[in-house]
Amino acid sequence: MFFKTQNSNNWIKCEKCKTIIFKQDLEENLYVCTKCNYHFVINAHYRIKITFDSFYELFKEIYPKDFLNFDDYSKKLKEDQEKTNLTDAIITGYGCLKGDINKYKVSVGIMDFNFRGGSMGSVVGEKIALISEYALKNDTPLIIFSSSGGARMQEGIISLMQMAKTISAIKLLNKNRIPFINIITHPTTGGVAASFVGIADIILSEIGALIGFAGQRVIEQTIKQKLPPDFQTAEFSLKYGLIDNIVHRHNIPNILSKFINSFYFYKK
């Protein structure tokens, strides 16, 4: 299953416009509402399927650990691993973008919101560091699809440090002029937005994705005002110059290919 179904039969209700859509139509439309363009949250495996012609996973051997003995974290990890068929909230690897006639190689990280809210703990941090180093060694651009509620509470201060760690990994790419594109998918907030995402060479966002640092409830409590409905959306972020562009899910491989091809065109 690639998404949260409203009911288990062949009809799915759009979470935004509430239109009932035939499941097959929705699948053919890459889980974008056929009526209102609402982008359903999709999981990492499905993202790979619709974005890459070929994909090879790397660093699957890195597993999370409940080193603080935090509440029922161990249990939750196990549940999410079974539910998502993932080891943690990110898949890393390399592949070729869909439709890229030159079949250029890109290094990739894809986060999955279904695993602990896509939160970044030691495993996400380590895998982003490893895939950056892989990109550096192989001289390939890095593409990350972010989707995260922020740093993972259950790994305490070590999670906060992953912000510094992932930034340092991207800095190595900057130093060697290896491009890094981040595609924001719904939602990307907190410590993930404020680390490697925030310093990407190019930040693109899927239609309607939420982007920001602080949570809306906290902001409303602080400023004692209601926030506008478009607050922290991709459209809001584009208006204020925080991101480079908004992309429709259908166009992502094509737009990414343009940039990847520009890099390889001049690469010796």
Partner: peptide
């Protein structure tokens, strides 16, 4: 960091990422 609407509008997440980045 201040959780305000204007702070978000001006890119709080980018500012924090850049400060961390600068220290490296």
């Amino acid at each position: 960091a201040y959780p305000g609407d204007v702070a978000e509008q001006r890119g709080q997440f980018i500012a924090i990422a850049k400060a961390i980045s600068k220290l490296f």
